[in-house]
Nucleic acid binder design. Structure first.
Lengths: 97, 97
DNA sequence: GGCAACCGTCAGTCTAGGCTTACGGTTAGC
DNA sequence: GCTAACCGTAAGCCTAGACTGACGGTTGCC
């Protein structure tokens, strides 16, 4: 979660969802330098959100679907829980019924 | 996403999933002061993640299920997309046949 | 009215971390 | 071997923002 908190990192993440991309290409589309992108990618990689592989002199990064699945499950559980708590609170605090 | 990036804010958010809580109670469970919790709650509220209501002299905060639903949908779409891109990349880069 | 409990906001401090520049390492092509 | 392209890392700067202490406002109770 902390990894996706930064706007730049989220922008990188969203681009990597579409498919594998090299570092330089990402930096060209973003208002930050290439090293900055490289650092963000390291954070995303350490968080397990992206994977990388070398292709020639370039390095391709891509979103790991399994990590997204875990985030999905995280909010799935929270949705059920918050919905139940919300109904519960609505019953105890009836404003017009 | 930025709102949930901070660890303290995430801790608050996770507690509010279980049900409505007053500010002072949250502050008692966390290693930060009450004003800090109040400020975090403001951020969460501005982001639309939580809702609040006054009950006597206290103010109860709670997670808005609809906001969680949106986050869920966000990662849902990304999951499909990243999975498709992942398979695609695997076909183009067959390491062992 | 007076007191206590609970909370939001302001001002100020201080640290985490995002960014850039500079450097070195690796790979492809000749 | 030489050059160029691509990238990761280190050092340093600097701003956003997380936190605290102090204050005032509101509500409930006697």
């Amino acid at each position: 979660m902390t990894a996706l908190g930064d706007p730049t990192r989220q922008a990188i993440f969203e681009r990597l969802v579409e498919g594998p991309r090299p570092v330089g290409e990402l930096a060209g589309e973003l208002p930050v330098s290439r090293p900055a992108v490289s650092q963000h990618l390291k954070v995303l990689k350490d968080a397990g959100l992206v994977v990388d592989r070398k292709v020639g002199t370039r390095r391709l990064y891509q979103v790991d679907p399994q990590a997204v699945a875990e985030l999905r499950a995280y909010f799935d559980a929270f949705w059920d829980q918050s919905l139940a708590a919300f109904r519960d609170a609505a019953e105890k605090e009836p404003q017009d019924g």
